[in-house]
Design a protein around this nucleic acid. Structure first.
Lengths: 342, 342
DNA sequence: CTGAAAGCGCTTACAG
DNA sequence: CTGAAAGCGCTTACAG
């Protein structure tokens, strides 16, 4: 390490290591890239030299040479920006960061709020600055996803894309099965007049959870009353609005299945303010098992989404795709977590 | 754009632009880097050529050449990992990402959970992979911060470092002033037996908020009863524990100032479960004005931390430092937000 | 104001 | 198994 005029140390290069080890730079590079065609003696010498010099590869140089960037983007597109206020987001972002770190791959966080952002980021990504994209976007037919795919960028989305022609990979929870299980649980608790607050129906998860709810009503021989279903927006305030509407158009409900914990918080709050007791008067079941679930009284009974596994799978699939594998979809099971609200 | 064997498009290079514009690559580069010493004619030709070719600079090549990476790290170190579950974290992370995006600088998210992580990331950073670091670490004398600084890496921390010898920049809220204002508010509401749940006292903000509380007790001629002060950990469950202890060692309190909203949620919950009404029996004041503040009933009266400004300042200061400016500290004012809990 | 050329630190056929 | 050398796409003194 020499010191440059500005006081910052100049890191050792592959050249320093080669000199130290008494081999050529090519040999050092080969050692760095898997160690094929490197003799034991050379390997030892290089290992020692690396330790001695404190050498760390210059990724810019490597990237320039290989054409790979060895980094990936975590992209949040506009319609899902509110997800940022959702505790699930943290779990997902954190999981992805950690799993990537194990492969020594940095994560670039990208937020596409405006159309301008979208254009800028699409350009950035398609210019080869990242090897692939972890996409959080609930928008059906997100233009970004389409553009990225058509540019050949490896991509894994969180949530099952709506529409048929999804040409990209995704990882999702078993939304329909999970919804079924929750509604069955509500019925097992003796509830018969079960309402539902759905997520946006044009976003992944939305229609499937609603379908699961309907499946079980039919299965149990319960009537399908349109007054029982209200569309929400995955926000707490949306839950409050939904509960108010439900209370006015179907005041006799004895349970509500809410498609997200955050909305469920709003629902419980509004219900309690209106004088209803949860779960005695009205049972409430959520979806997610986010940190929010245990933040209220009564603690929320909910369907656990395996966000830890979801992030692990997203990373695994993205790396596989970067390595040349074809896109695929993965569905992970949810799990009923019974607490106090239902 | 030509198409390579693997089907991915090969992006145009500066060479393509130069050919298209009928100038040398040097001229294109000069145009790209500020446009100095470029004639109007050349400028126009280059602009047209860039548009026509869809050219985007290859940052790896640029970085290799300049020695700058044009990216920064957002680093969360171990003691503060729990911050990840704090809604404030999102606001901060998001703000930093957005402000950096305006300068076209990507943010690399880094989590240092273990000692291994710390070593790996320190190496990564000091090897010139990023130009600077936005640090979220509440640990006094964080070894990472010290190492980074001694390696000459530009660094801006969130929160005022404890200890005297802080050689790095920071942005913090006016913790002591804010605490004072909240306690004065409690007193103005007629409260006299005011308890406090502090943050960790070995972390930024902790001691200052406690000091502010004490300032006002003295100022109001109120006694300093050790039974009134309990140390928390910035988590919701920590708030619950603290409230339980308070209730047993000082059952006659009529107000609690809690050093964070998340802890305040736990405090309110425990208070209510014990049969106390908030704010009638016991008023509760929080700190942060995070999303959590309005998630409970009664809505939390709290001190607003200007996280939007904090992130803006952090980015501004980091870029200034990268450009050669000396480190500095910035303190931003807080603001009382009166809701229902006090 | 502009071009030719060196150099940034790697990887990777190519010859041996 | 190994070395010499070309090449990745930029920037930046240097000459003009």
């Amino acid at each position: 390490m020499t010191t440059s005029p500005n006081g910052r140390r100049k890191p050792p290069t592959i050249h320093d290591v080669a000199r130290e080890a008494g081999v050529s730079r090519g040999t050092v590079s080969r050692f760095l890239n898997g160690g094929h065609y490197v003799s034991p003696a050379a390997r030892t010498a290089v290992e020692t030299a690396i330790r001695k010099t404190g050498y760390v590869v210059n990724r810019h140089a490597r990237s320039l040479s290989t054409g790979r960037s060895d980094s990936v983007a975590f992209l949040l597109t506009e319609p899902q920006e509110k997800f940022f206020e959702d505790p699930n987001f943290n779990v997902l972002l954190r999981g992805c960061t950690e799993h990537l770190a194990r492969h020594d791959i940095p994560l670039l966080l990208m937020l596409a709020s405006s159309k301008d952002d979208r254009r800028r980021l699409t350009r950035y990504i398609t210019s080869g600055h990242v090897d692939g994209v972890l996409l959080v976007s609930n928008h059906s037919g997100d233009p970004v996803a389409a553009e990225l795919r058509s540019a050949g960028i490896p991509l894994v989305a969180c949530g099952k894309p709506l529409g048929t022609a999804s040409t990209y990979s995704y990882v999702a929870a078993a939304d329909r099965d999970g919804a079924q299980e929750m509604v069955r649980h509500l019925i097992a608790r003796g509830r018969r007049r079960i309402a539902m607050v759905t997520g946006p129906l044009d976003a992944p998860g939305g229609p499937d959870r609603l379908a699961g709810y309907r499946d079980v009503l039919t299965e149990a021989g319960l009537p399908h009353d349109p007054a029982l279903v209200v569309e929400g927006d995955y926000r707490r305030t949306g839950g409050e609005d939904a509960a108010r509407r439900l209370l006015s158009q179907a005041p006799d409900i004895d349970a509500v299945f809410v498609a997200s914990d955050l909305m469920a918080l709003g629902v419980v709050n509004t219900l309690q303010k209106s004088g209803r007791s949860v779960p005695d008067d009205i049972a409430v079941g959520g979806f997610d098992d986010s940190a929010a679930a245990t933040s209220i009284t009564p603690a929320l009974t909910t369907m656990r989404q395996p966000y830890d596994r979801i992030s692990a799978e997203m990373v695994r699939m993205l790396l596989a795709q970067i390595a040349g594998e074809d896109p695929a979809g993965v569905i992970l099971p949810t799990e009923l977590v019974v607490r106090e609200s239902a």
